[in-house]
Design a protein around this nucleic acid. Sequence first.
DNA 1: CTTTTTGCAATGACCGGTCAGTTCAACTAC
DNA 2: GTAGTTGAACTGACCGGTCATTGCAAAAAG
Lengths: 194, 194
Amino acid sequence: MTVASKPDGRVARREGTREAIMAAATDLFAARGVTSTSIDDIAEAAGIAKGSIYYNFESKAGLVEAILARSSELLTEALAKAGDGRHGRELRAAVVTELLELLRAHPGGARVLVTELFRTERSWREAIANWRGLALAPLIADLRASGVPADRAQLRAAAIVGATLTAGLEWLVFDPQLELATVRQSVLESLGLD
Amino acid sequence: MTVASKPDGRVARREGTREAIMAAATDLFAARGVTSTSIDDIAEAAGIAKGSIYYNFESKAGLVEAILARSSELLTEALAKAGDGRHGRELRAAVVTELLELLRAHPGGARVLVTELFRTERSWREAIANWRGLALAPLIADLRASGVPADRAQLRAAAIVGATLTAGLEWLVFDPQLELATVRQSVLESLGLD
DNA sequence: CTTTTTGCAATGACCGGTCAGTTCAACTAC
DNA sequence: GTAGTTGAACTGACCGGTCATTGCAAAAAG
């Protein structure tokens, strides 16, 4: 082996630290909030030195943006996958399923995203707004294709995603022993999609 | 006068200061988050002295709890009113209407409540959990009366309230020019209650 | 194969600034 | 007189960001 790719073990090392930092930061941000989490807290939780955080990220805001960017990317992929080849109720049901699976795989990222979604005086506000538009695009497009006017489609998309995220967080934060299928079924019933 | 109650105009004066502090703090907390808002910011925004905040509230955490308590109280009242004498789909539709009206009247409080809802390492976490159970009680009770098992009723209540709050915040934060009726109709359609 | 060099990655003590909370003497409305 | 308010001054803890220094893996030289 070894013919093809990565010749340098250093990039792997650095990638490892970046990953450890982001993972630790995501969990702490989710539990305490961004501002209540210090860089020292993150360094300690990640088991690396404070300086390494600033070696790998420009600033605390940069770290937050990197985390939000990845969460948004995953969200966009999930909704794109749900929309692929589906329409109407079937598509909306797939959105619920994909979102819950994503939520289970990355609960911390979702919590950070949700808490930052409606903040108006944060440096990364604009970035979030853009990503949200991108992520919701497939769902909104399908609603519009079904004859729903633009502003209403936006609201309905928000309601569908909001219902799923809220029930999903309720599940993961307060009743993590429940099965995904149970949660899925409940959300579908709530949305009249069962 | 003076027979029955108010013996002193000073309590009204003090109530005014308390109100001004809570109003200013709520707006700032909603936009920037609790930890990113300083006591000096609040005093300046409220047009009162810093000392008055500590005369009227025990601490910053105490102020936050007072705000969350009032928001939760309003939420409980709204859901109780929606549940009064109604059942099934009619009740759930009334929940949507009451919540949106409450949201329009107190957008800041709702935003603070939502962002703190899923935090797990805050001093007021327990208080929020209790208030939430209390507020959702009428909705959950009706779902259970319709034959939904306990854990599912909890999830469905979360989904219904989550859908309404998410769409409602979308409305107030990003499209405040829309009519309440439009938002209401969109949420009802999303929940299959139209 | 062994030794030396190179430069990326990681470190943690440190600095300047911020903020919650305290104190208090003067002032105001009742 | 007294409950409530003011605003400035102060403290001590904490926090984001910096930087001189060290560690270390790979490349170059022998």
